[in-house]
């Protein structure tokens, strides 16, 4: 497997006077799930299309699978676009074999692997059915199967879970994680932040065409951690010396996703200080104590609302 599946260095792209992508750099490694995030119209699709050589960057360099995207490298990429569809009146397996053959896979292998994948996706009985006869969820799964049929080393997926019910979402999620564990580089663009938290190793967020966040998911969340802890239990929290002020939060309210009591720390105080004071002072019962790390969803909203970008 390739270590650097995608390497983007200082790419920019303008449409007339509108700068869609401005000096963006990141890299995607083999064996990781890399999330490409950003609000609608931020430039995600433009970046993906530049990586896929559909659009040319005005400046900067892009390397895919350690080189320029040529015919051979194209065959090592699987792409699930956001705007997707299949030939409506053609049997499922025939479409899979044709699209895999365009990636250089022999028809016999494609047929065998196609049937295996359909079986894995619980679609074993649809191979001879036309796409128009399938439900939307089934079509989505077939589309995903087409993306990974030829065993690509780099998989670029745009909103892989849209239109899927929780069970199908889980099936696709397991497949993506399975691919990652086998060493495939997964670049995923999605608005479902909880999926990114659960699945992604690293992320890159673009806002108004410019880089906003970049790094390991947990690191990014840590960077946005509040000077506070969340507690649940009984006690006079405001009386604790290390606590500056107290705020009640209900589920999904404010900047924190979980319900509880938010204890803001005084300058110089740490979460350890708060914990020690709770334990040492009588009358406190503690059921939950954790650092106030915002969810990715909260961070996303904050970045967009505050217009955070890194020049």
């Amino acid at each position: 497997m390739t270590s650097s599946a995608v390497s983007v260095a200082g790419i920019s792209k303008s449409y007339g006077s509108f700068k869609a992508v401005d000096n963006v750099s990141f890299d995607v490694q083999g064996g990781e799930i890399f999330a490409l995030l950003g609000p609608n119209g931020a430039g995600k699709s433009t970046i993906i299309r530049m990586i896929l050589d559909i659009l040319k960057p005005d400046s900067g360099r892009i390397a895919v699978l350690d080189g320029t995207l040529d015919d051979a490298r194209k065959s090592r990429i699987g792409y699930l676009p956001e705007e997707r569809g299949l030939y409506r009146n053609v049997p499922v397996l025939e479409i899979m074999v044709y699209l895999a053959s365009l990636k250089g896979m022999p028809a016999g292998d494609a047929r065998k692997r196609g049937l295996e994948l359909l079986e894995q996706l619980e679609l074993g009985d649809v191979s001879k059915k036309k796409v128009s006869e399938l439900s939307k969820g089934m079509q989505q799964k077939v589309q995903f199967a087409v993306t990974i049929l030829h065993r690509p080393e780099l998989v670029i997926i745009d909103e892989p879970f849209s239109g899927l019910d929780p069970i199908n979402t889980l099936t696709i999620k397991e497949l993506i994680i399975g691919l990652r564990n086998q060493g495939t580089a997964i670049m995923m663009s999605t608005h479902q932040m909880y999926q990114v938290e659960e699945m992604a190793n690293r992320l890159f967020m673009i806002n108004r065409g410019k880089p906003a966040l970049y790094g390991p998911v947990q690191q990014v969340r840590q960077d946005y951690a509040l000077p506070a802890v969340i507690v649940e239990g009984v006690g006079d929290w405001a009386a604790l010396p290390a606590v500056e002020r107290v705020e009640q939060i209900s589920d999904g309210e404010g900047t924190m996703a979980q319900a509880g009591t938010l204890l803001y720390l005084r300058d110089g105080a740490s979460s350890d200080d708060v914990l020690q004071q709770i334990v040492s002072q009588p009358g406190h019962q503690l059921r939950r104590f954790e650092q106030a790390i915002p969810s990715l969803n909260d961070i996303f909203i904050r970045v967009v609302e505050e217009g955070v970008v890194h020049e």
Binding site: L52, I54, K74, S75, I77, Y79, P81, E83, R84, G85, L86, Y87, R88, L99, L102, K103, V146
Partner: peptide, 16 residues
């Protein structure tokens, strides 16, 4: 027209 309207073209242009 079919490949364009069904969006299959999005996949095709990454292969050919």
């Amino acid at each position: 027209v079919e490949e364009k309207s069904s969006r299959v073209i999005e996949i095709l242009v990454t292969s050919v």
